[in-house]
Computed example of a mutant assay.
Amino acid sequence: MSKAPPKPAFTHGNASLFKGNCLDWLMAQPEKSIHGVVTDPPYGLLEYTKEQQVKLRNGKGGVWRIPPSYDGHKRAPLPRFTTLTHAQVEELSVFFGLWARALHPALVPGAHVLIACNPLLSYLIAGAVAEEGFERRGEIARLVMTMRGGDRPKNAHDEFPDVSVMPRSQWEPWLLFRKPLEGRVQDNLRKWGTGGLRRPSDEQPFGDVIKSAPTRPNERALANHPSLKPQAFLRKVVRAILPLGEGVVLDPFAGSGSTLAAAEAVGYRSVGVELDPEYIKIAKAGIPKLASLTVKE
């Protein structure tokens, strides 16, 4: 007797959020049931362990950098990816290889996968995903000034005032992949509704550079998460991931549900998976509010 499929922890409109490990969840899904992926994974894995999350929530930092406030604005914490050991970097590559392998069968042919990353680790994730049979389709550059980089040498600011240890980050790479097509793009579009990206308008193709402000305080107040992305940006990329506006968008690292909220706002069906019960609790309250939020382009 087969097991009944697990029920979602939360639903709102066309969005469903499941609690669980995304690898286990993906391997339990029917083949060719997901039409696109937009996700912001835990880049270093270490920062989302229970120990490090407790430190973050207590304001102790751990591997998280807690930036100071400027002009009365509290900045979001940032993971210190430069502290990862060689073994942790290897673990990252292995994990994303396993993840891509579990994801591949669940996607329809031609489904696009968009993965938020950062310049320090993008090469690892890109290599791991490509090795599992996904086609590299470029990168989306989210133009945004962050608090990462630009610092002078630690404990030697006065001695080396003209030196930055690494560049101040002014963009965020989102890696774009596609599951191989069945036939030509037009054949795939007719059969599966996938294979391309939805244009913003008849006159304008979807571009690979998107200007974006940092996530605004009013959005953080609704669904706070250390790496919460703004709805104005997410709605653009989520809309693009289904070329005909039909199908299911998956976020396997759902966090506080911002991708699902964006999908709901543009009228798509969506599914999310999240392991941390604290973020699921935040998502339950936040998804409806984020989805109904009016945002500036």
Rank of each mutant, 00 (worst) to 15 (best):
V266Q: 08
C117I: 01
T39E: 02
V165W: 06
A254Y: 00
P30W: 08
Q170L: 01
V248R: 14
K211L: 14
A100L: 07
P6T: 08
G245C: 05
T83Y: 04
R235S: 13
V163R: 13
A4L: 07
P161V: 04
P277N: 11
H35Y: 07
R216P: 10
G13L: 09
L143T: 07
G59S: 10
M145V: 10
Y70C: 07
I34N: 03
R239K: 12
Q29N: 04
G150E: 11
M1K: 03
S16D: 00
K55R: 14
E274C: 00
A111K: 07
V37D: 01
N188G: 03
L275G: 06
I241T: 15
S69A: 14
R178D: 02
P217D: 15
F95P: 05
A130C: 09
A213H: 11
H86V: 08
A223G: 05
V37I: 10
R199A: 14
L46Q: 12
I34C: 04
V37H: 06
V54R: 15
Y268R: 09
P41N: 06
I241P: 00
V273S: 01
H73N: 02
P214Q: 07
P105M: 13
Q29L: 12
E31A: 15
G267H: 05
L124E: 13
S270I: 03
E278S: 12
L260D: 00
R178V: 02
R239L: 03
D71Y: 12
A4F: 02
V63I: 15
H86A: 10
P205R: 11
N14A: 12
I210R: 06
E219Y: 11
P200V: 10
S212K: 08
K211V: 13
V89E: 14
G44V: 06
K74F: 04
L17V: 01
